[in-house]
Design a protein around this nucleic acid. Structure first.
Lengths: 125, 125
DNA sequence: CTTAAATCTACACCCAACGTCAGGTTTAGA
DNA sequence: TCTAAACCTGACGTTGGGTGTAGATTTAAG
């Protein structure tokens, strides 16, 4: 699969793929001959995972720090504690975010109800 | 309260407050004499609400669209349906985000367990 | 063999959300 | 009255996350 097809399938532009490659988020399976990038199906999963983590509010740097956990074993014993620290920090963030999001959702529902009432009232007049 | 104290209390810089003012997110209670901004306590709440919405991933534009719901009645009957639409869209987003976040949290916990096991195993060797 | 479509690199540019800097004004306290 | 601290505006710089464009090369199809 070339970059055009990958781009299509994953729903990101080829420029974005180039950009992610520069940041170390993805690599083509190989670049034979004159430099065309060739990808396998795992590249698509990787891009989709990146998108999902972005939706959670992680920066590309943070994504780079944990992305490999989804695809390979953590490399080397040296970095494992560091990775663990990152994971735990993100878990704490995720929990805080869950709380805020739940509150926010409740507020939204309250306001939606209020809006419905106001609209109905305006119509009756 | 002047901008310095507000900035301190709300944990944002005074330039950020200026910036938010240009975007229509906050206004000083008054600007007498030569233009110093004076705020009351509600300004702090407003800034804190902005920060909370930012943590949920809303842009400043999106925040501007809903912020007043937290502080005053929706102004005018005309825009209520529009506001309702915005709220419902954000509720849908919030629900999707909740799902993803829950999955993410579970993944994190799995990976943390795995990391602990790997570290323990490396130590035993 | 030719040619259009896809790809390459490199540089420039874009937007959001601020921060920095410079130069001028204002206010509060000694 | 004077001076330091706080404030003002406006212009420019920065960072993150990309997008656009140009000019060259490569590949695939006829």
């Amino acid at each position: 699969m070339q970059i055009g097809e990958l781009s299509e399938r994953a729903g990101v532009s080829h420029r974005t793929i180039h950009y992610y490659e520069r940041l170390g988020l993805i690599k083509p399976a190989e670049r034979e001959g004159a430099g065309y990038r060739y990808y396998d199906a795992s590249a698509q999963k990787r891009l989709e995972k990146i998108a999902a983590l972005k939706r959670l509010g992680l920066s590309l740097d943070e994504i780079a720090a944990v992305l490999d956990l989804y695809f390979e074993d953590a490399s080397g014993i040296k970095g494992k504690e560091k990775v663990l620290g990152i994971l735990e920090a993100q878990l704490a963030k995720a929990n805080a975010q869950l709380d805020e999001l739940t509150t926010f959702k409740h507020d939204l529902e309250t306001n939606i109800t209020r809006m419905h009432a106001l609209i109905a009232q305006a119509r009756r007049k």
